[in-house]
């Protein structure tokens, strides 16, 4: 890199004035670490800028200063009020009148500190509440979308064109049971797992439709799936449905000795 060219490219002015993009900033800071000439040039512009600002200074209203200094001193308000209490106890009664202006001054300093602290608290509390509100809104949105999904699924069950096929366990797995909701007009097939044992992670259940004695793959699923209703692949025809255990991802043809449940359509 030609550092002189870089120095005179306007990047220094852009960086110092806070106008550089994040990428430009990052690059500039990295280059500063390896090119002292760049740092020197940056310093020169910074000094020029400071000089310009100071020469063109506009005196802020005098009343601002006390407030500003009081608010930055709030780091140790507890210490200060401690001192006041001790002095009060030490001089009971004496010089009460002559100290009055001092007390008033002290009280107003404390009041300003208190106000500044209170305002700051209020501000951060407001920010917290805003954050919390956003979190809640996000939760409501997620809940809404889950609810919509459930409502859609419920519609499937109520649809009158649906054939419900009760899948019963075979000898291999007498307790396995599931329901198939098959819409013979739209060919949609939905599966509701009622009781299917968990499988090792290398295996999955696979659903088949039997058409004229031949199996047709309708997709794989896990017993652990937390969805209410699983949408399987479509089939126009089916004399029966069967569930087998296959390797993860499924097989092109069923392993019949591992058939878990079977159900005949009533059509």
């Amino acid at each position: 890199m030609n550092i002189q060219e870089y120095i005179s490219s306007g990047i220094i002015e852009s960086y110092v004035l806070g106008l550089a993009s994040n990428e430009e900033k990052k690059e500039f800071e990295q280059l500063c670490a390896s090119y002292p000439a760049l740092v020197e040039a940056r310093n020169a512009f910074e000094e020029l800028l400071e000089k310009t600002a100071v020469e063109n200074a506009v005196e802020p209203p005098a009343h601002l200063k006390a407030g500003v200094l009081a608010s930055v001193q709030q780091v140790s308000p507890i210490q200060q009020s401690k001192i006041i209490t001790m002095e009060n106890n030490g001089n009971p009664g004496t010089g009460y009148r002559s100290n009055l202006p001092v007390y008033i001054a002290a009280a107003s300093v404390i009041l300003v500190l208190g106000c500044a602290y209170f305002l700051y608290k209020l501000y951060s509390q407001n920010e917290e509440l805003k954050d919390y509100n956003n979190t809640l809104r996000a939760k409501v949105n997620t809940s809404d979308s889950i609810l919509n999904k459930i409502v859609d699924e419920q519609k499937v069950i109520r649809d009158s064109n649906i054939t419900v096929v009760n899948m019963v366990g075979t000898q291999v797995a007498p307790r396995s049971s599931a329901n198939i909701y098959w819409d013979s007009t739209s060919s949609n097939v939905y599966l509701v797992v009622k009781n299917m044992p968990k499988l090792p992670t290398t295996q999955q259940y696979q659903l088949w439709a039997l058409i004229e004695g031949k199996p047709k793959d309708l997709g794989v699923f896990d017993a652990t799936d937390d969805r209410v209703i699983l949408k399987m692949k479509n089939t126009k025809k089916a004399e029966a449905f069967a569930i087998t255990i296959e390797k993860k991802g499924g097989n092109p043809s069923p392993t019949l000795e591992k058939m878990q449940s079977l159900g005949k359509t009533k059509l």
Binding site: E50, A53, V54, N56, A57, V58, P60, L69, V72, Q73
Partner: peptide
Amino acid sequence: DAAFNYLYEHFSGGLYS
């Protein structure tokens, strides 16, 4: 506190403008 006071005295005008 003194340093802040100094800071204010010297730079508040430049920042304010």
